[in-house]
Design a protein around this nucleic acid. Structure first.
Lengths: 175, 175
DNA sequence: GCTGTTGGTTCAATGACCGAACCGACGATG
DNA sequence: CATCGTCGGTTCGGTCATTGAACCAACAGC
């Protein structure tokens, strides 16, 4: 999108949202960010996205305040991209979309989301059936579901097989 | 999308979902369908979408079982497009996306969603705070919010100013 | 000095989207 | 019965976005 052409005239918050996150790859970049991917190269190998497109998407997301570019070491200068509060607010959308995809399309559970405090699997509204509360993103634990392949090719997918909290940086182990 | 190129290898229900509904215009067509738009021409004037793209999207959505093409009169033969159960299952996603757009981007409430039974405004999980239940799509009433313009140009937008239930066909009054 | 890693940019080719024009089936009008 | 208008499309040339490969710069380590 980012054409503003017609979406802008829609008078609809869904259209406004799609202006910002509706382009190809954008939501997958955000999904990876929730899973703890932060570095350019990790997005690259995990998504198989063209470099130019990744650059463009990260720049757009940064400009729109959904991600933040952060220097994590000088010399050599290295930056990482992390979700801002605005980006984190997309979690319910991600969950709803993922739940729809699983129920209506794949029929296989690829990932499980649990309440880190009590280990209970979350409902599709991110509520914990045991605690009766909506679980904040930082208390959500992701682990591979029964349908996920056990030995993926790329190192990022391999690192994501370990259970971990959302947003916590993924740890790529050396070859 | 519909390229299947890389999304297919993602092992992720979000990616699968985006394969199907991630293309430009697709989610806006579905949004209109929730609002009761059913006919080719009404989608056309309300969205300002190119005709060829609308045809392609409706065909794809029909093939994927998200919408259904239904003959509503013979002579002249006229069809309408309505959401199937699979399409209706997208409602939580639409709500989540719309809520994010409103809270994080537009800051203006363009539409209000109420529980038709009791008139209470719904939360962003489609729950009725008064009744304490998740409200099914057919019991949701849409009405224009404070931010919506009162005299839109196209007849479909004008017809949508009347409060109505989701999925109930929109009534276009003659010029 | 050479090589490898990270984080990019540039470029030609392909594919998607756009807007305008056209088309066929039919009803209504005169 | 000729013409006009509506509805639901298809076709087509031009433009814009995406793709994949190549290139580049900064730096670390050997």
């Amino acid at each position: 999108m980012a054409l503003g052409k017609d979406y802008a005239t829609q008078e609809c918050s869904i259209a406004s949202a799609l202006e910002v996150i509706g382009e190809r790859w954008t939501l997958l970049v955000i999904r990876d960010a929730f899973y703890g991917v932060r570095r350019y190269n990790d997005f690259l190998v995990h998504l198989g996205i063209p470099r130019a497109v990744l650059s463009a998407r990260l720049r757009a997301l940064t400009e729109q305040g959904i991600m933040e570019k952060r220097r994590y070491q000088e010399s050599p200068p290295r930056d990482e991209y992390v979700l801002t509060d605005r980006g984190i607010a997309l979690w319910p959308t991600m969950r709803a979309l993922g739940a729809w995809g699983r129920e209506q399309l794949t029929q296989v559970q690829l990932r499980v989301f649990r309440h880190a405090d009590c280990g209970t699997e979350l409902g599709s509204y991110n509520e914990c059936p045991a605690c009766g509360t909506i679980v904040p993103v930082s208390d959500v634990e992701v682990l591979p579901g029964p349908g996920l392949s056990r030995d993926p090719a790329d190192p990022v997918s391999r690192a994501l097989l370990k259970p971990k909290r959302l947003l916590q940086p993924v740890v790529i182990d050396p070859v």
